[in-house]
Computed example of a mutant assay.
Amino acid sequence: MTHPGPDAGDRVALACPSCADAGTTVHEVLKPGGQVTVRCTACGHVHKERYDPPPETELDVVVSQGDESLATTVDAPAEDAVEVGDEFVVDTPEAIMQVRITSIEVADDTRVEEAAIEDVATLWTRAVDNVRVNVTVHPNDGRRDDSRSITVSVPGDHEFVVGETAEFGDEEFEITGLQVRDDAPEYRFEKLDHDGDTVFAKDTKRVYGRDVTSAAWSAW
């Protein structure tokens, strides 16, 4: 969320000499520096402009990862807004993490779904680049009383697919259903159980599976 200045490939809003009547247009940065070289995406005109990044403000951020959490700060454009579900990078002494906003705290400890940066007191987030996902594995004979729970650690962009077989160490199970997290982007339903239904690990609250290991199921 830090914006010290545009890098090559970034897109910024600037006035274009060839699109004078259009006000500002989106430009691609070709070469950064005190005066950036940019290309107007509307007409293709290449020119140099001075670009001053918008003023920034420091935000308090709490990052949760599993059972642990840490407090840090990030710099964000003061004129921007944030909402639950937004993702950004947090750079801390411990690690650089991709996080997702799960709650926004404003004045008087009030929690909201979206807010202007200037109104934010604390952003509550969770790490989504590497996540731990709970899995419920049912025995292959249908005895749900003998189901077991495990936890798997996977990259956030790992895909769980209903109908596919997943292997984690000694665990092997067919995925029969997926429960989506409340803070995930919009999925069709909160629970998915049709073959081919797919959810990213960072969006998964729980995986349901049927045991397919070669060893006989035993309660002992």
Rank of each mutant, 00 (worst) to 15 (best):
D109K: 08
C16M: 00
D146K: 09
D146C: 13
A15M: 06
V12E: 07
V154L: 14
Q35L: 09
A116T: 04
W124P: 00
V12P: 01
E56Y: 07
E79V: 12
V207L: 06
V46T: 11
L192S: 04
F168N: 10
V61P: 08
I175L: 07
D197C: 07
V29E: 01
F189P: 00
T136N: 06
D170C: 03
A116H: 04
G44V: 00
G163L: 05
K48H: 13
S218W: 05
E186R: 12
E159I: 12
T57F: 03
S64K: 13
L123N: 04
K31D: 14
E68P: 07
D86F: 10
D211Y: 10
E174I: 02
L30C: 00
A216H: 02
T41S: 12
E87T: 15
W124R: 15
S218Y: 01
D67K: 03
E190D: 10
E49S: 15
D129N: 13
S214E: 15
Q35G: 12
V137R: 02
V154N: 08
G85R: 09
V26R: 11
F88M: 06
G196K: 10
A166E: 15
G209F: 06
E114T: 12
R206L: 04
D52C: 13
S218N: 05
R11D: 06
V131H: 02
D91M: 08
D129A: 05
I104T: 05
H45F: 09
S69C: 11
E79I: 13
V120R: 01
V135T: 07
L59Y: 03
H194W: 10
S153L: 08
D7Y: 08
T2V: 07
C19Y: 09
P55A: 07
F88C: 02
D10M: 08
V61A: 01
G142Y: 11
A216I: 02
A107Y: 08
L70M: 15
T2K: 10
I117L: 02
L123G: 00
Q35D: 15
G85C: 05
R50L: 10
Q65Y: 12
H3E: 14
T122L: 10
P4M: 03
A201E: 07
E79W: 07
A22R: 15
L14R: 06
L178E: 03
L59M: 13
G44P: 00
A81C: 06
W124V: 14
A121G: 08
V82N: 09
R111P: 02
D108F: 12
R111I: 15
V133F: 01
T204A: 00
D197G: 03
Q35A: 15
G85Y: 06
V131C: 02
V38Q: 00
